[in-house]
């Protein structure tokens, strides 16, 4: 069996073509193209302000005005509202975490709960507490009384309760202590092992290198480079052009 060509999965789970987004008069994304294959972890890399967060939001239907084709599992989702997109099996983990602060850990998980989905791992609170043991000790605690790392775990766990087939993970390492970052990377690898596909946006190339199979490099609202993560790490010229600060 020959592996599929590294930067074009033949039957991608997620395909984004010519995605454009405006905020008011500001043209944030001028045409983003990318794909995520089944079982693949793809890193969306770029400098601050390149459009990583906007890309994920637009895929999720959370951008104010968007244009372009987005297909998920063969279905066009470019015009669907967020909740419909989520119910198809896309899980979104925002960078600013957005825990429901008045709700307990258990209640936060309940909000994310969706029926089991064929072809996707089925999550229950107990399974998630096994994955994130820290959370198990604070099931009745409110979101306001949690540390940043705990909130990040809860955000991811809450999204997993929807039994997604594809995770959109926005800057999971941002603002976290190195030990928590390592835990997050472990978690992402374990999710991949469970069969999940992941599109993870990162400024932190070492985190991306630890989890991703492929990378798409974003600059000024467009993907300028895409290929294997290992190739990106080997190619200093590309990294200097698009990523050096």
């Amino acid at each position: 069996m020959t592996p599929p060509a590294p930067h074009t999965p033949s039957d991608p789970l997620l395909r984004v073509e010519g995605l454009q987004v405006w905020y008011g008069h500001a043209h944030i994304l001028t045409g983003v193209d990318l794909t995520v294959g089944r079982g693949e972890v793809v890193a969306l890399i770029g400098r601050n302000g390149a459009g990583k967060t906007t890309t994920l939001k637009a895929i999720m239907g959370l951008a104010e005005s968007r244009r372009g084709n987005v297909t998920f599992d063969g279905r066009p989702i470019g015009t669907l509202p967020p909740h419909a997109i989520a119910r198809l099996g896309l899980g979104y983990v925002p960078e600013d975490r957005r825990i429901f602060a008045d709700l307990t850990v258990d209640e936060n998980l309940e909000v994310g709960r969706q029926p089991p989905r064929p072809g996707a791992p089925h999550w229950t609170p107990d399974r998630l507490f096994a994955l994130f043991p820290n959370l198990a000790a604070m099931r009745g605690r409110r979101g306001t009384r949690m540390s940043g790392g705990e909130q990040q775990m809860l955000t991811l766990a809450r999204t997993l309760m929807g039994n997604p087939t594809l995770l959109l993970l926005d800057e999971p390492s941002e603002g976290l202590a190195p030990i928590i970052v390592r835990q997050m990377a472990d978690a992402v690898r374990r999710l991949k092992a469970e069969g999940l596909s992941v599109l993870v946006s990162e400024q932190n190339t070492s985190f991306a290198a630890a989890v991703a199979d492929r990378a798409s490099v974003l600059e000024k609202g467009q993907v300028r480079w895409s290929g294997r993560m290992a190739d990106l790490m080997a190619d200093e010229a590309v990294r200097r052009t698009y990523l050096a600060v």
């Binding site: 967020p82 909740h83 419909a84 979104y92 957005r98 709700l103 909000v111 999204t159």
Partner: peptide, 13 residues
Amino acid sequence: QDRDMASALGVDP
């Protein structure tokens, strides 16, 4: 608390 986040989790607001 957060209408957009709830809808991103599959809740039809």
